[in-house]
């Protein structure tokens, strides 16, 4: 009885730790501290955002474009994420100059898989819902809402993001561009 209570408590603490990490990570983006943000991504980070399509009940395998094969909205690693940060830093990236204001809201956070195990969590699959609000100029407003499938990994004692798969609910993207970070 006590043993399982301990396990629950441990899981709760881990959940709290990872939530705090993801909140801090998101706020680095919203505060435009991009260089510090890049530090929180593993070298093999992959951000992947497939395109969603309207398909019939019996053709569900077509619903999202396929990883490693099809076109998507975003499919990149550290190199291009770094390039995007550099692009913003030029001050000439008109899509983000003047800068957009963004706010990430992260909710419904669940730990889907802890490996190797709870006593020594080194890699955790996290599922969550998000809203990424963006406002730029006077009235330009985007709401990007969806599900996130994150993988966080402990590197030298600190959590880092190793993978982020984003399922947007929009099939036709209602934002003219994607120049902020998920």
């Amino acid at each position: 009885m006590l043993e399982s209570q301990d396990a629950k408590l441990q899981e709760l603490l881990l959940q709290r730790e990872i939530e705090q990490f993801l909140f801090e990570e998101a706020s680095l983006i919203d505060e435009r501290r991009f260089k510090e943000w890049l530090e929180l991504l593993t070298e093999d980070i992959r951000v992947y955002v497939p395109i969603v399509r309207n398909v019939r009940y019996d053709q569900a395998e077509l619903e999202r474009t396929k990883e490693f094969k099809d076109t998507c909205w975003v499919d990149e690693g550290k190199e291009t994420l770094t390039q995007r940060v550099q692009q913003i830093a030029t001050g000439l990236h008109w899509a983000e100059e003047p800068r957009s204001r963004t706010t990430h809201l992260l909710t419904n956070i669940r730990l889907a898989e802890i490996s190797p195990d709870l006593s020594d969590p080194r890699e955790v699959q996290v599922r969550l819902n998000f809203m990424l609000y963006r406002n730029r100029g006077q009235v330009e407003t985007d709401f990007l809402v969806g599900k996130r499938f994150d993988r966080v990994r402990k590197v030298d004692g600190a959590w880092k993001v190793a993978r982020r798969e984003v399922h947007l609910d929009q099939s036709v993207l209602l934002a003219k561009n994607l120049t902020t970070f998920f």
Binding site: P50, I51, T65, K66, K69, D70, T71, C72, W73, E140, S171, V172, L173, L174, A175, K176
Partner: peptide, 11 residues
């Protein structure tokens, strides 16, 4: 064609 069509709105 690589599978998938990007579709988005621009004002």
């Amino acid at each position: 064609m690589i599978g998938g069509v990007q579709k988005w709105r621009v004002k």
